[in-house]
Each structure stands twice: as C-alpha cells, then as structure tokens.
Amino acid sequence: QSYDYDEKAETWPFFAMAVLVVVLLPLTLMQIYELFNSQKEEKFGEQTSTLNELNQVLVPQSIKKFRAKYKVKKSGVWSKKTLIVCLGWCLVAVIWKTIDSNEAVREAASTIFDPYLLLDISTSATEKEIRSAYRKLSIKFHPDKVAKNLSEQQRAVLEEQYVLITKAYKALTDEVTRENYLQYGHPDGPQATSHGIALPRFLVESSASPFVVVGYIALLGLILPIFVSRWWSRTQSVTKKGIHVKTASYFADRLFNFKPSQVVTSDLILDWLSNAEEYKIMYPHLGPKVFRNLLNDHLQRASNGEDLNEIKLRVVAKTHSLLFGLLDVSTNFRNTEISLAAIDTFKSIVQATPVSPESQIFQLPNVDQKRFSEGSVDDVRTLGKLFTYDEKKIGQILGISDESRLQETLKVASFIPRLKLLKAEFKVPGETVVTPESIPHIALKVLVVSPKHKAFPPSKFPQVFFEEEQDFEAQKDPFASALEQPPVPQTFAPLFPVERTGGWCALVMLQKDGKVIQTPLVVDRLSFSNLDNDFDKREIKDVEASFKPENWVVGTIKIPFSQPAPPQNGDYFFRVVLKSTEYFGSDLDFTLPMMVRD
Amino acid sequence: SLTYDANSKLLALEDASFDELMNLSQINKLTQNLVGESNPNFTPQPRETSTVMIKKLFETGLQQTKQHKFPEALKSISLALEMSQRKRAPWEAFAVQLQEVQFMLKNRVDLCLVQGRFVDALQDLEFLQNTGLTTSDVFIRKTDALIKLQQFELAKVECERGLSLDPSNVKLKALHMESTRRLAEYNG
C-alpha cells in the first residue's frame, strides 16, 4: 500500500547516469573513430591531375550552382553531434557530483560489507596475507587485549569492530560464510532489503503526477511508435540495391513481360527510368512524360529555365542508383539486351551525349557537331582513329579553331581509358586446370591505355609480368590482389550534376543461349598510370624497339563465378563484357572458354 | 459491364484493367478468325488451300532465282511469307507454321545478301536466331551482313558466338579474323 520513495535521491541518479553512459559511450567512440577516419580517407588518385583541373574549368555555371547548393557538408570537429556528446558528458559529471555530495548515498555505502576494507588488505591478497592481517587485527581489537581505560562507548565500538573483522575473515575463508557473502553480500545471510519507487514522492503522488502519467503515455504511446514506424517504413521502402521497392517491382514487371519483339534501345531504358517511384516522391505534381523530356534535354545539352534546370539536374543525379537497380533486376532475369543497353544509357547520361555511332567523338568537350558531321573526309568515329591524324587536322575534323580549346579537347581525349586484354582465363586457386565441380573465377590481365597509344601485341609482355603470388593467402582470397590496386580517378564529366568516379561493369554470358548468368561486378580499382606514357602512334615508327614492358603497369581484374564448374569434362564458352559506365570507347567484349579437365 | 456487338461479333468492357483488356483482345482475335473460317469442321491441321497458295508463290520465287531475276524472286518470296502470316489461323499447328516460315526466310536472306540489302537480311537472320535456329550458316551470314554494314563490334560478337557453338568452323574463323582486323582499323 505504501511505497518508499526516493526522497533522498539515492537511486534515481544512478539510473540516470547509467542510461546516459550507455548512450554516450558508443556515440563518443563513433565520433572519435569518424574524426580519425575522415583524415585518412583515400583521395582520388593524383594520376590524372590535368583532367581534374579541366573537370572544374569546363563545368557550366548552372551545374556549379547546383553542386554548391547540394554539397554534403563535411562535419568537422565542431558539429552538432560533437556538441551533444559534450553536453551529455557534462550532464554525467553533474550527476556524479550530485551522487558524491549526497549524504544518504554515503550512508548507504558505508553499510556495505567489504571484508577487504575491514581487514585492510588489497582485493588480490593471498590466503597467507589474509590470515596474517586477521591475526594482527584480532590481536589489536580483541576485547581482552584492548586498553583498559576506555569508556563504555569506546569499548562497544571496538567490540563491534572486532566482530566485523572476524566476520570479514570468515567471509573470505569459511565455506558457509563465504557462500553467504557471495550470494547476499553479507556473511550473515540475506539482509533487510527495501523496495520502492526510484522517483521522488512529489512526482508520483502530488500535483505533478498527472504530468508524469502524460509523459509516459506520450513516450510509449506516441514518440516510440512514431520513431519505430518511421524507421520500419524507411527500411521496408528501399531495396538492397538502394532503389524504392515500387521502382524495383516496376522494373521487374517490365522485364517479366518483356517480349522478344520489343526493340531495345536507350530510349526504352529512359522511358522505364521516367516511371521511377523516386521521381514521383521528389516531384509529386510532375508526371513521367516531364521526367522523360528532362532526361532528353540533358542528353541534348539543352538549357532550361532556372527552376526546371534544378529539377532536371536532380532527376539526372538520381539515374545513377536507378540504373544500377535496373541492372540488378535485368541480370537476375538473365536479359542480355536490357543489361547492355542500361550500361550504355548510363554512359550517355554521364557524358550528356546520346548513344550514336559518333558518341566517342561527341562526348569530348568543344566539339562542333555540325562541322564534324558535314566534314569528315575519312570516316572518323573512334578516338583511336582520331589520333591517327596530326593535331591541326584533328582541329579541322572536330571543328575547333581555337588553339587552347583544341588542347583541352586533346587532353581529355587522350585520358579516356581503353582496356586492352592481355590474358584471360578461368582459374581455380591451387589447381592448374579447372576440374569438374570446382569453383573457378575469371582472372584477367588488362592494360589501361590511351587512345593515342600505338597498339602492340600482348605477346610483347613476358609471362613473368602476369604472374601473381601463389602463396596460401592468395589461394584463400584470390580477389585480394585485385583490391590492392588504386581506386580509379575521378570521371571527366563536367555536365553531370555531381562529381563522380566510376569504372566498369563486368557481365558474364553463357554463349550457348546468349543469356547473362550472374549479377554484374563493379570494377573500380585499376591503375591509370599508363595514360601518362609517351607512346604516341603518330610518332612511334618501330614498336619492337620502342616498347619497354617495364614502363607499363598491368592491371588485374578478378571476376567471381557464381556457379561451380560443370560435372563433365569439356569446353564451355562464356562471353565476358566489361562495359564502362563513364566513357564511350572504353569497353571490352570477348569470349572465354572454360576447359574442364580431370 | 461486358457488351457484345452482334455486327462485329466483338466483346468490349468498360473500365477494363490491363489483364482484362488482354484477355478480351485474345478472345476477339479468336472470334474474328472463327468468323472467317468457312470450314465447319476445322482442325489444327494447316489449311490445305493456304498451303497450296504459299507453296506456289514460293516455287515461283525459286524459279526466278534460278533465272537470276533476283528482285522479282525477292518479291515472290516476300509475298509467300506475307500469306503465311495472314492466311493462317491462330489455332493452326505452330510447329508446321514455324518450319514453313524459317525455310522461306532462309531463301529470302540469301536473296537479300546477293542484292546488297544487308539490313533486310539482318532482320531475317535475327528472326531465325530468335526462333531457335542457331546453326553455323546463320551466324556466318549474320557476321557477313554486319561487316558489310560496318558494325565490326557486333560482327565480332556474332562470330564468336558462332564459334562457341561450332569451334572448328573454318568460315567462321576466317570471318573472325576479318572482323578483328576491320575493328582494329576502325579504332585507328
């Protein structure tokens, strides 16, 4: 009926401090970790610093404004979170002080039975030490050995002390007493315990109590469900690939109902993208047609009014995750055409150039498309072909008369990476052949070259350049060597709303039915240092003499294979496609046989 | 509510959902074909009259080919193909129909290639591939058409697939070398 209340503030401060520390400790550790980690963050490779410069210079004003507006503020040392953490710890200090200065708490603490304190020994004392301490103290405090000229009171105190010391000794040595001490904290067995409410009386029984009740109702009935439901719906509404579940199911529906009579073009992909749920949420008053037109405007590099421009840039920025989401769905449906078209659409959005035979040329800055289409004595459609001409002629072909602008364009063109295949095989770690039912992976040796580099046959590379460590570590994790390469540099994409990096998507198809067999692998670690090499095809006369393999960095790409090797011996053919998500003219497409032998 | 037009013999539904519309169009298509069917005891067997007509047109085409009258042969065979699409009811045995179409298409492909109509040939070849005909001669012709159309990357992809299914094919190997060489030239 009647409860003891925490009038003396003995209990609730501990509870409050415990709650605070439970929250603050992980938060503090996280903040410290983030602070240190942000300083170690891997910077974009300095490999193409000239291109980075141009990447900034050639960005139009509208996009500069957009990037400034949506810049993710890097939280430094002084951020909101740090402030909250500091305040939290201050609060802990205040509560600590309260507890410390609380008489009632001290009193309660003093009644705690501590045998080590009573015997004046450390908690790690050995049996011998305990016994000798007891002997010394019992002699000192024995009622018979005590000084005779003490008052009754003093005598009683000393007697009590003697009893306690004996109890302390027993608590550490005698089995029964020790049991009691361990279980109940006191050698005499269970002590008197009090139960009560760890709140001051005024909060519960008097006028403040309705507020407490309302507070509880608000917390349990409103705030908690709101937070939990918000978190739940947010988790439920996004797929693993980071797109809205409605968008994912729309893509799945398109692919499920895909008819072979449908022609797959970049336009189809853009049509599908325009129906994404993300856009509906961002701009509920606009329809898919508007988004489709905005995407078109972006590809045609048309400028819209200021408001529409911002919408357009946000729509374009979102295509990154949407396209990867679509790719995930299409590879799961084993649809090769859609998967390849999706990556080509990606390129075209990144470079703001529609997919066409001239995309490799039109992705370059400063190109006069009209003059290019009208001119062109020879059929120049590729960057490689472009670099067979001297600079002056290139200027004529591209319709660039200004020398500095021509130099800009040439710089960009020569830094667009091309992948050259040096070696490709199916590899089973620790084996020399691919055995039936083993788990192979695809091991590629590639060379990242510039379109202006002269071609040379892969045989120019001695085998030793392709060899890798075959130790136990390498066999346990064959993909580790590929991950040791530097991350790819920032993409040259001045017309993309956000600064970006990207590499290639590796797709594997079964040649028998021409269908995709696994989800794509993103290749974003390769050295681009070869792009700086001076090996201009217009200058090299004798490849044999000029080529030095040690000047070239060989790249490694390891693609995991999703299925085990077939159970029968034989040759099985697969098509491997490495499609760049960033540039036109960077792709690699070849057939790789898997030779299964005993 | 479902309505039936006695004149056109077609069904219609107000506010139909996507699936219902599809269902309706299927029913209506069958109905229209049924209405046009003169034989009350029709079977899935291909109608003899149509087969005769198509065969006649096709044979005319073959004759003209022998006489090197290629444009006319192309016209005849195309007409035969049109007939096979128009004059066959949806319930006729699909396997027979497909074989008929594929056989005629193979001839049309060669006629197109001979006359330099590469885009047309490509369409027919893709149809053959899509409907399960993956023999080497299809890949050979498709690679050839793509090379002539200057689509060297696509040509290389095609002949690599052809070689995967028939690794010892000499013609495909030669085409692979050619498409690789042309692709290298294309890339400077």
């Binding site: 066409s356 | 699409q85 129909q97 179409v101 893709e126 409907t131």
Partner: peptide, 22 residues
C-alpha cells in the same frame, strides 16, 4: 503462334531502328 506473329511484325520496326542507330 501469336508470339511468332508479333516477332515477324516487328521486323519493319527493327529495320527502322537499326537504320537510325547506324
């Protein structure tokens, strides 16, 4: 049967698309 018919019908459309693309 209808799938094949659709595929055949799409030949002209595909031809146009290819011509535009290339």
């Amino acid at each position: 049967n209808q799938a094949m018919a659709r595929r055949y019908e799409s030949i002209l459309t595909r031809k146009e698309v290819n011509i535009n693309q290339w």
